[in-house]
Design a protein around this nucleic acid. Structure first.
Lengths: 140, 140
DNA sequence: GTTTATGCAAAGCATTTGCATAACA
DNA sequence: TGTTATGCAAATGCTTTGCATAAAC
């Protein structure tokens, strides 16, 4: 499906993107952005740390974790709940669901328009609906 | 909501339940069952370990984790994917969805009949639909 | 007597924390 | 200079592993 994340091709664009979101574009944050927004959509925090380390810019663990939190806070990333034991981040900012290939572990995004979910009001009671997460597990 | 898990009130019933599922009812497995099937529905592996330890029957970590895996395999438990970083098990064996209270962390079950999900065939392609997980996040 | 289950302690892995240093405005 | 960001190394928490011992059939 189409992404809503902003693809960035170079350091200047990354810096501009960060600034546009009220984030001071430090060397480390730019490096992280470069990896996040040019790679595939879903990435674990720990994998990102490894990738950044492997790149020419070495960055500490804490910075990576801090930065990811900051990006979520500033609306550059979404954090996913896919039941893994690690933090998974998604550069797709649109509300969306997931198609999870149980055999390969691959995750595909599904636009919310592709799946209809009907929630009766009685279920919610006095609580407000914050979000609806749907994961379709498929095999083969 | 109503449970489909088998409530057990004593050791003999636990043993019978295990045997009925082709599981040798060892002292440890019975103790684990006693906690699992008489307590609330959702429990983390690590919490179960702590609870068993606190009870009169002391059991090793490995046994607890092995046993939980075995119970899932034999159809006594379901393992959940709720985005926590720990293993969560559910004694509710019926297919169901979840209502997640983001403020308190509380999880409630929703029968599949309570929520309608419509998945167009095109999405699945050649893959077979193994399951549909819906989590409603609510606040307040 | 073999198979099966359990226990123990250590390792693994992702994440978090506290605090000192460095960069920035 | 005062705030904000980074780095380091250790701690935390949960899970997993390997192997020796014990229990079950």
């Amino acid at each position: 499906m189409e992404l809503e994340s902003v693809p960035i091709s170079n350091v200047d664009e990354a810096a501009a993107l960060l600034r546009a979101h009220g984030i001071t574009p430090t060397r480390q944050r730019v490096a992280i952005s470069a990896i996040l927004f040019t790679c595939r959509q879903h990435m674990e925090a720990s994998e990102l740390f490894r990738r950044v380390q492997a790149s020419d810019t070495s960055i500490s663990r804490s910075t990576v974790y801090n930065t990811l939190e900051l990006f979520v806070e500033k609306g550059l990333l979404q954090e996913l709940n896919l039941g893994d034991r690690s933090r998974i981040y998604d550069t797709n900012l649109a509300p969306h669901h997931h198609l999870y290939h149980v055999d390969s572990g691959k995750i595909e995004d599904l636009d919310v328009s592709q799946i209809k979910v009907k929630v009766p009001d009685e279920i919610l009671g006095k609580s407000g609906l914050v979000g609806v997460d749907v994961t379709l597990r498929v095999a083969g």
